[in-house]
Design a protein around this nucleic acid. Structure first.
Length: 230
DNA sequence: GTCCAGGGCCGTT
DNA sequence: AACGGCCATGGA
C-alpha cells in the first residue's frame, strides 16, 4: 500500500515543482495591500469553481481597487456581487467575503500578521465558526495564505484515496490525519508547510491529467501502486 | 447541448 | 452519520 511520502516522491519526480497559488506581489506592493488577503479571497471564490473564473473575479476586484479587508467589509453587497459574478455562486460568496472581512477588520484591525501569529488550531476553529468556511477553505487559508503546516484535502484528494485505495475512512479528518502523521515522520517540522503545499498541488495536477472522473490511466505515474486501473 | 469545476449549508433519512 | 438539492458562471 503506497504511503503519502512515497506518493509525494513519485508525483514530484513525475511533475516537478508546481509553485501553486502564486500571490500577485507587484499589485499589492503598488497598492500597499496584503498579498495574503488575495489568497484568503481566492479560497472562498474557488469553492466548487474552476480557477479561471476566480481569476476574472479577482481581476475585477483589483481594477476596482477594493481587494483589501476594509473595502470588502464595508462595500455595498450588490456591488460586490457584480464584481465577483464570474466566479459563480456570487450571492453566497459575497455574503461570505463580507462576513469574513468584517470579522478580520473588527477583531484584528485587518492585520493578517496578528491573525496568523497564533496557534494553528485556534485560528482554524475561528475560521470554521464563520458560516461559509468549511474545512477545506479554512485549511487553504491556513496553508496558502498563512504558510502554516496543515494538509488540505479536496475532492481530488478524496478521489485519489478512494481509487488507490488507502486503507482509511474517506472522511476529511481521517485523510488529513493520515497524510500528516506519515509526512511528519519523514520531514522536519520547518519543511512541512512547503511539503503539504507542494503535495496538494501535485495531487491536483495528477487529478487533472490522469485521475479524472473519467480516468486516463496511461501513463499515470502511480499506475504500479493503484488498484483502480484496468 | 451536456458536463463539470481547487465546497458548504440545510433539510431529510 | 450520511445523503441530496441547492447555489451560478464559463470553458471543454
Amino acid at each position: 500500500m503506497i504511503r503519502p511520502h512515497t506518493l509525494y516522491k513519485l508525483l514530484h519526480e513525475a511533475f516537478g515543482n508546481q509553485h501553486w497559488w502564486p500571490m500577485d506581489k507587484s499589485y499589492h506592493r503598488r497598492h500597499h495591500t496584503d498579498p495574503r488577503f488575495e489568497v484568503v479571497v481566492g479560497a472562498i471564490l474557488t469553492q466548487n469553481t474552476a480557477w479561471p473564473n476566480v481569476e476574472k473575479a479577482l481581476d475585477n476586484l483589483k481594477q476596482s481597487r477594493v481587494l483589501d479587508v476594509e473595502n470588502l467589509a464595508t462595500m455595498d453587497r450588490e456591488e460586490l456581487c457584480l464584481l465577483i459574478k464570474p466566479s459563480g455562486f456570487f450571492n453566497q460568496k459575497a455574503e461570505r467575503l463580507g462576513k469574513l472581512s468584517a470579522y478580520l477588520s473588527t477583531t484584528y484591525q485587518g492585520d493578517l500578521d496578528v491573525f496568523f501569529a497564533r496557534d494553528l488550531h485556534e485560528i482554524r476553529a475561528e475560521l470554521l465558526f464563520l458560516s461559509g468556511i468549511g474545512p477545506e477553505t479554512a485549511d487553504s487559508i491556513l496553508l496558502y495564505a498563512g504558510n502554516l503546516p496543515i494538509f488540505v484535502v479536496d475532492a481530488y484528494t478524496k478521489r485519489l484515496c478512494a481509487r488507490l485505495p488507502l486503507p482509511i475512512p474517506l472522511t476529511y479528518d481521517e485523510i488529513q490525519q493520515y497524510f500528516e502523521k506519515n509526512l511528519q515522520t519523514h520531514y522536519p517540522a520547518h519543511q512541512l508547510s512547503s511539503i503539504y503545499n507542494e503535495l496538494h498541488a501535485l495531487i491536483v495536477t495528477l487529478a487533472k491529467q490522469h485521475c479524472r472522473k473519467k480516468p486516463v490511466c496511461e501513463p499515470c505515474p502511480l499506475k504500479m501502486h493503484c488498484a483502480f486501473g484496468p
